[in-house]
């Protein structure tokens, strides 16, 4: 089971775009192979978790499982870059 955690701030258009972009990529790349779990964390509601994961800015996505940990930050509209950054390249291709 792939576990990805996405940090955003508030329910702003920026956050919604990040969620939609990431979900589209994961649907496309992982769902055919099996299930994934996308956990969306609002930093405003869960500041401790964000501090634990050393979040410096949002949107940030972290691949928690399977190891190793991988992190991407910024714009998630480019599928190839996101998969590369999350170390999911093999699945995507």
């Amino acid at each position: 089971m792939y576990t990805i955690r996405l940090y955003v701030v508030g329910k702003t258009p920026k956050s919604i775009k990040a969620i939609e972009d990431l979900r589209a990529i994961l649907d496309d790349a992982i769902k055919t192979q099996g299930d994934y779990f996308l956990e969306i964390i609002d930093v405003l509601e869960n500041p401790e978790l964000a501090a634990n994961d050393k979040i410096l800015a949002t949107p940030t996505a972290i691949k928690l499982l399977p190891p190793p940990l991988a992190k991407v930050i910024g714009d998630f509209s480019n599928k190839e870059k996101v998969l590369l950054g999350l170390d999911l390249k093999k699945i995507g291709s």
Binding site: T60, A61, A70, V72, I73, G74, S77, N78, L84
Partner: peptide, 8 residues
Amino acid sequence: MFGLPLAN
């Protein structure tokens, strides 16, 4: 770990 920075 800052994360891989992505821009369009």
